[in-house]
């Protein structure tokens, strides 16, 4: 069995400015945040980001890493809108390609099965066609009607965070929803999976059905053990969303000074520094209780 273990920084060393990067998870749920934080520490820029957006988008926008966002929405779930994403749009700082979320799924699926496009009626009559002038239509060859030819969304890189994985990259979700993480991996040239814990392969299915091992190692380039790596997004059943921290993230976006203070406190060191700073926030509360 190949050992694909590596660190976040090793993953980021394989990325290049200008790449198209797909980010797994959904909204503020099971986002590969430790990998995102590693990108924030890097010199990477001009990225095209494809995602069911959450704070991954906000953080990358705030750090000026995004040239173009391919998205259907950006939300923090319990807080409907991400302030950094809003600012990036309202100042014209990023390009966007906005699609219905179902079209994103189709585009990733098309890339994963090496089809140039898949037909759909979704998008017809909506801003999706105006905002994406390159979208082409396809005539129904068997009957009436013109459909949207949703192009394959090819990714240079996929970044996802799962609950467990083995060292070869077989990766497992243990929460309620796999989201689209396996599709992101299958649509990418290189796929990197971070996870809460790397375990022996037997461990993956000792208490869980094999269907929870949603990502097969044949799609995976590298595996990163990243405990609490999805923080502050949810990663159930390992942990829920850190709502207090998410609020802090949103409040810090209010002005440049408070954002610099947030960056100084949490994002100026490495991942271990981040996790220590987060743990330090929780510590006084733990003492009181």
């Amino acid at each position: 069995m190949r050992d694909k273990r590596m660190t976040e920084d090793e993953v980021v060393s394989r990325l290049r400015s200008g790449m198209t990067i797909g980010v797994g998870g959904w909204g503020s749920r099971r986002k590969p945040m430790s990998l995102i934080r590693a990108i924030l520490r890097s010199d990477l820029k001009d990225l095209t980001v494809v995602t069911f957006g959450g704070p991954d988008v906000g953080l990358l926008c705030a750090a000026g890493k995004v040239r173009k966002l391919v998205f259907g929405f950006v939300s923090l779930d319990t807080i409907p809108l991400d302030p950094h994403f809003r600012r990036a749009r309202q100042t014209g700082a990023i390009e966007v390609a906005e699609f219905d979320e179902g079209m994103l799924q189709l585009g990733l699926y098309a890339a994963s099965i090496r089809m140039p496009f898949l037909p759909t009626r979704v998008g017809l009559g909506s801003l999706v066609l105006d905002a994406n002038p390159d979208l082409r239509m396809v005539a129904n060859p068997y009957g009436k009607g013109e459909f949207v030819a949703m192009p394959a969304l090819h990714l240079d890189v996929a970044l996802v965070h799962m609950n467990r994985a083995d060292a070869a990259g077989n990766a497992q979700y243990l929460g309620p929803d796999p989201y689209f993480d396996d599709l992101f991996c299958a649509a990418a040239e290189q796929a990197y999976v971070s996870c809460e814990r790397i375990v022996d392969t037997e461990e993956l299915t000792r208490h869980a059905h094999p269907s929870t091992v949603r990502i097969s190692r044949m799609y995976v380039t590298g595996v990163v053990e990243a405990p609490n790596g999805a923080h502050f997004t949810s990663c159930v059943p390992d942990y829920g969303r850190d709502e207090a921290f998410q609020r802090r993230y949103v409040e810090a976006a209010a002005d440049p000074a408070s954002w610099s203070a947030f960056v100084r406190e949490f994002l100026s060191g490495d991942e271990a520094d981040y996790q220590r700073a987060v743990a330090a926030l929780a510590a006084p509360a733990a003492k009181e209780s």
């Binding site: 259907g72 929405f73 939300s75 906005e98 219905d100 998008g123 017809l124 909506s126 801003l127 999706v128």
Partner: peptide, 8 residues
Amino acid sequence: LGVRGAPG
């Protein structure tokens, strides 16, 4: 928010 699934 973004169009989400509204067009579909």
